[in-house]
Design a protein around this nucleic acid. Structure first.
Length: 291
DNA sequence: ACTCGCCTGTCG
DNA sequence: CGACAGGCGAGT
């Protein structure tokens, strides 16, 4: 969870540089809880309303005077509860949540600032603006569509079973199914790809073609890869050009088996890792280890 | 069940 | 300067 930029500005960085998936969001949740729970909101500022889902500036001032009680997570969504109101946050692809001293200079692309008692601010920074931040009355939460449509959380005990049940009746490539938040909430491309690598399953495999044994192995692999990443505080690996620099300055919290490793040798058998585009997105696999 | 559009930073 | 990265919802 250390970031050179964040540290340089004296900020507590609450999200990684990587596209945030479940382990990163959960790490953010824990950090937010630790830093801000029990504090009262004393001011808000919505500077940019052009997020994909939009930030409605009128929705934020009612938080003033309320105390942050808890931060929950559902899949990749965070739900921050302030008594009668709740903020639903999604980091999208490039969203970060920063807890900084009020005096700290604002980072570029700071769309939302929530000022707390004690001279600290929560800042939502999102260059690509795929994230979202919306306030709802607490009793409206069950009807918020983005939350209501989520499948079971990928960290819960029946995650593997949920995947197995869905896979049994679908011809869709298993990688796509793992990305479908209605089936299982929390996986993104990196962890879906890595779970399949650990399970020895090719990403293009139709769900229906997988037997019970392999599906059970997949369920175990999902739990394993998420657990490893979470234990490391989330992956802080850059998804861009720094992939080649494995072990670079300790920012690689998780040993990726195949993700982003096209053309390089499989760590298990040495076979060249392949990249295929499935439903418009890259999938990586070892053609020998993954069938 | 698929494709597209939304965005910007980074790399070839 | 174009390609690509990617979550997610709308559209087909």
């Amino acid at each position: 969870m250390l970031d050179p930029l964040g540290k340089a500005h004296g900020a507590t960085l609450l999200s990684s540089r990587t596209v945030p998936e479940l382990p990163e969001v959960e790490t953010v949740r824990r950090s937010l809880s630790r830093a801000l729970c029990g504090r009262r909101v004393v001011g808000v500022e919505a500077r940019d309303v052009r997020l994909r889902d939009g930030i409605d500036p009128a929705h934020w001032p009612p938080l003033i005077g309320l105390e942050l009680e808890a931060v929950d997570r559902r899949g990749k969504y965070l739900v921050a509860r302030f008594g009668p109101l709740a903020a639903v946050l999604h980091l999208g692809m490039s969203g970060r949540l920063l807890v900084v001293p009020s005096a700290a200079p604002p980072a570029p692309h700071t769309h939302l600032t929530v000022r707390f008692a004690g001279e600290v601010e929560l800042r939502f920074v999102d260059p690509r603006r795929f994230g979202s931040a919306t306030v709802y009355p607490i009793d409206a939460l069950p009807r918020v569509s983005c939350l209501a449509g989520l499948g079971p959380d990928a960290l819960c005990e029946d995650a593997g079973r949920a995947v197995a049940v869905a896979a049994a009746r679908s011809r869709a490539p298993i990688r796509n199914m793992l990305l479908d938040q209605r089936i299982l909430a929390g996986l993104g491309n990196i962890y879906a790809t890595e779970a399949l690598a650990r399970a020895g399953i090719r990403p293009t495999r139709p769900g229906r073609s997988l037997g019970a044994t392999r599906l059970a192995r997949l369920g175990g692999a999902i739990a394993e890869v998420l657990g490893d990443a979470l234990a490391a505080g989330g992956t802080t690996l850059d998804d861009g050009g720094f992939q080649d620099a494995e072990g670079n300055a300790g920012y690689f919290a998780v040993e990726l088996l195949v993700y982003g490793r096209e053309g390089r040798p499989c760590k298990a058998c040495g076979t060249t890792i392949r990249r295929v585009v499935v439903a418009g997105r890259s999938a990586f696999y070892c053609p020998r280890c993954q069938r």
